[in-house]
Design a protein around this nucleic acid. Structure first.
Length: 270
DNA sequence: CCTGAAACCTGTCTGC
DNA sequence: TGCAGACAGGTTTCAG
């Protein structure tokens, strides 16, 4: 489900509600959701801890638990995950995988129909984030960095942009939209991108993510319902519909096993 | 190093 | 109506 803008929206929504709340009891409903530690250690370690902050790194949510030494509760929503606040009258729903009962009679539920989502509880969050590339909305991500990084590799553009060790936060939708906005073909080899093209791609990536956040993400199925960025898609899910620039029908192809949407006229391979 | 395929899962939609 | 098949916003692992 969620890419960077959706996760950012969820974090911003949860932050004012969760900060200051204390965990009274944890219930793990699907064992494989928890990467580390063991279920019994997890339940024991979070019990009685207070949420002091919640932030985002790439597509991970990072919930900080006091007292010191602080523990990091890290969540990746993968394809279908969501974090939802439940009232004590309706504390669970089908597909809930982890419940955190809070002392104010609310429940923080990790809801995840496809069971791909994962949770970590660690002392050092860097162990989970170790391999991630830069944040695309940070100052570290510049067009100069992007050009150099593209030329250090020899890979198809789209799978490279989806690689979280290269750049952290893009997913299938925002990659297609960024490539379309920068008029680059998803199969272009990364080391053939010119300086001007890298500048265009850099601008498009940042702009599409910022637009997504402004719209509070995109809602495509019933899992994530908050956003309206789906109304602004120019290519994703638009196969057969006319390109907004040249009216050529949008084409759907498969790149790196992922559905990929392009304007075959605006996004030439050579 | 790079690519593609398969695996992890469940739900929804389409077409016969 | 029933059923097979395709498809879904992600990531990891493995073979070539």
């Amino acid at each position: 489900m969620p890419e960077l803008p959706e996760v950012e929206t969820i974090v911003r929504g949860l932050r004012p509600f969760l900060i200051g709340k204390t965990i009274q009891k944890a219930i793990l409903l699907w064992e494989r959701t928890l990467v580390t530690p063991s279920a019994s250690d997890f339940v024991r370690l979070v019990d009685g801890r207070t949420i002091v902050n919640i932030t985002r790194r790439a597509k991970f949510l990072h919930i900080l638990l006091s007292p010191p030494p602080l523990l990091s509760l890290i969540v990746h929503l993968r394809m279908s995950g969501d974090l939802q606040i439940r009232s004590i009258e309706h504390p669970t729903a089908p597909h809930d995988r982890l419940l955190l009962h809070l002392t104010d009679d609310h429940v923080l539920a990790f809801y995840d129909p496809r069971k791909f989502g994962r949770v970590w509880l660690v002392e050092n969050p860097a162990t989970v984030f170790a391999r991630l590339g830069p944040e695309p909305l940070s100052e570290e991500f510049t067009s100069v960095w992007l050009y150099a990084a593209l030329h250090r590799r020899h890979r198809q553009l789209k799978p490279l942009l989806l690689d979280q060790t290269f750049l952290a936060g893009l997913g299938n939708i925002y990659t297609d939209e960024a490539l379309y906005r920068s008029r680059l073909h998803p199969l272009r080899l990364s080391d053939t991108i010119t300086t001007v093209e890298a500048e265009r791609l850099h601008t498009a990536i940042r702009q599409v993510l910022l637009d997504g956040i402004t719209c509070q993400g995109a809602s495509i199925d019933r899992v994530y319902r908050r956003g309206r960025f789906q109304n602004c898609f120019l290519v994703y899910g638009k196969a057969g519909q006319p390109c907004s620039v040249c009216r050529t029908p949008i084409v759907r192809l498969i790149v790196g096993q992922r559905g990929t949407h392009i304007c075959p006229n605006c996004q030439r391979r050579t």
